[in-house]
Amino acid sequence: MRGADITQHELFSYRTLEDRIPQDHPLRNLRAVVDILLKTMDGELAALYAKTGRVSIPPERLLRASLIQVLFSIRSERQLVQQIDYNLLYRWFVGLTLDGEVWDHSTFSANRERLLNERITRSFFERVLALAEWQQLLSDEHFSVDGTLIEARASMKRFEKKDGTSPPPTDGGRNPSVDFKGETRGNDTHASTTDPDARLYKKSAGDKSRLCYLGHALMENRHGLVVDAEATVASGTAEREAAKRMIARTVSKSGATVGADKGYDVAEFVAALRLQGVTPHVAQKAKGSAIDGRTTGHPGYRTSLKIRKRVEEVFGWSKTVGGLRKTRFRGLPKVKAQTIFTFAAYKLTRMGSLFGWRWSTA
């Protein structure tokens, strides 16, 4: 007998939100891990808020919501709030009840300077790193470093002369036409009026120039986990400078190796690493290489060059899933926070694969 397509709205629900989430869902394990990490940040989060006044939205919920945005490729905070409202899985992960009211999307902007900044995101990043170290997942001997382009949220039409002599748009409207054909444009003479921190840059000779930032990751070679991260303005030396900073504060064992591509094969960079007691396993340039037979003759050198390519998996996930291909924000401080938090999310998913709870067993 065919059933009738009649929808009868029930007044009460007899299933809790907890009952609706499958027991073997991978987010259950992730939620448990994230709750522990946020609990260790309790004192640091409490220091951000006054002792009196109106009660705020719990910062733990904002951070969990930001994690959902990265993990499920939600493109904007406005859309994130909408999905938390009707998606029971997201609502449960964030910590809301079935009838709990979702905050306005502007709450993220209001908390950007206080909560969703580089200091707090790096603190969360370091908590995830400490968990990986506690589980003995990290190598303290072998590392890889690399950088990647992060496209800025800025238009080339607003890349204008610093002296203010750029010609006006040829027509009006919301998206006016700008004729810069034949004009030589560079960072020395031009700047973006949309995002002053963005720089015109290209990764390789055959690539096109674009307004962007650079993201940097230092990866340990045992399981491919990011142990340090940076974001900088784009320049020809930014990758090497960021690598030296990350290695100095993260790699402490004398004789440790760091693999890198040919862009790091510069005498000054190689000498700086050796001065820190680190062996540079850098891919050799065809001419004028700073790497000699003392390094290339070692069997570990070839292994480092092979494993260093895993760092591209970090960048690939961060751009395709984590939304880091084009930053959601303007200004280097906000881009730094987004980059570090995205790499922390990648570490959690990578650890989920290693622990076996990333995918459902049902």
Rank of each mutant, 00 (worst) to 15 (best):
L11Q: 13
Y14K: 12
E18T: 13
D24Y: 12
H25S: 05
P26C: 09
N29Y: 12
V33M: 15
I36Q: 13
M41A: 09
M41G: 05
A47T: 10
A50V: 09
A50H: 10
I57V: 15
P59N: 06
I68G: 00
I74A: 05
S76Q: 07
Q79L: 14
Q83E: 14
I84S: 01
D85K: 12
Y90H: 10
W92N: 03
W92M: 05
T97C: 09
D99V: 12
G100E: 13
D104M: 09
S106I: 07
R114M: 12
R122I: 02
R127T: 06
L129I: 08
A130T: 09
L131R: 08
A132T: 04
L138V: 10
H142I: 10
S144L: 00
K157D: 15
F159H: 01
D163N: 13
G164S: 07
T165E: 11
P167G: 06
P168T: 09
D171I: 05
D179P: 05
G182S: 08
E183C: 12
R185P: 06
G186H: 10
G186R: 09
N187H: 11
N187K: 09
S192T: 03
T194V: 15
R199Y: 06
A205E: 15
K208H: 15
Y213S: 04
L214W: 04
E220T: 03
L225P: 01
V227I: 13
A238N: 05
R240S: 03
V251A: 01
S254C: 12
G255C: 09
A260T: 03
D265E: 07
D265Q: 05
A267G: 08
E268F: 04
Q276N: 08
H281V: 00
A283I: 01
K287P: 05
G293W: 12
T296C: 03
H298D: 13
G300N: 11
G300C: 07
G300T: 10
S304D: 10
R308Q: 04
G323N: 05
G323S: 08
T327G: 02
Y346S: 02
S353C: 13
